[in-house]
């Protein structure tokens, strides 16, 4: 039976207690995207700047549980300064790590708020290179708690939507 230590790893609690990149960038020029978890009412606001194909800055606002907050914080630290193409790969890998139970969740759970659902091509679990995730691998234990997966993926879906919006705006 999964224990709490699988879920609440030290890195997760650290990012929850002292979240990185908190706040909002001025928008415009930054892209601002909101994500909602209709199951629990969590809300996340991702603002990001993309310059020359690189995520030059990102900030996270909103409220949520330790899992959604720490996942967002870890995400912001992981993507800041990285090229968009790498960030998209990282989103895919992260979603892959989280996908094991996700398909068994009720339809509509974790749906994004306004706007189209971002399209993310999720790889098969065995194809995932967990090492490439670095600190993010600490969130791996979340899949043992299926109802919390949506908490962990909320910020990532929101980021993906933001990247899509920037792309389609040209």
């Amino acid at each position: 039976m999964p224990g709490l230590e699988d879920l609440y790893r030290e890195i997760i609690l650290d990012h929850y207690r002292s979240p990185r990149n908190r706040g909002e960038l001025e928008s415009p020029p930054a892209q601002r995207v909101e994500g909602f978890n209709p199951l629990c009412g969590d809300e996340i606001v991702v603002t990001l700047d993309v310059h020359d194909g690189v995520v030059s800055d990102i900030k996270i606002a909103g409220t949520g549980c330790s899992i959604s907050q720490s996942s967002a914080s870890l995400m912001s630290a992981a993507v800041k300064g990285r090229p968009v193409t790498e960030v998209r790969d990282l989103i895919k890998t992260f979603k892959g790590m989280m996908s094991i139970h996700e398909s068994t969740l009720p339809p509509g759970a974790g749906q994004q708020g306004e706007g189209a659902e971002a399209t993310i091509d999720v790889p098969e679990p065995e194809a995932i290179d967990i090492d490439a995730l670095g600190e993010l691998a600490a969130l791996q234990g979340v899949v043992k708690f299926p109802v919390r997966i949506k908490c962990a993926t909320l910020s990532w879906n929101t980021l993906a939507q933001g990247l899509d919006e920037i792309e389609s705006a040209g």
């Binding site: 224990g3 709490l4 879920l7 629990c40 969590d42 949520g64 549980c65 330790s66 899992i67 907050q69 708690f145 919390r148 908490c151």
Partner: peptide, 18 residues
């Protein structure tokens, strides 16, 4: 957060809603 409360309580067999 209520989610976290509910999760910890569950470890003690306590069912509350969040």
């Amino acid at each position: 957060h209520p989610h976290d409360i509910s999760q910890i309580l569950d470890q003690y067999g306590v069912c509350v809603r969040a």
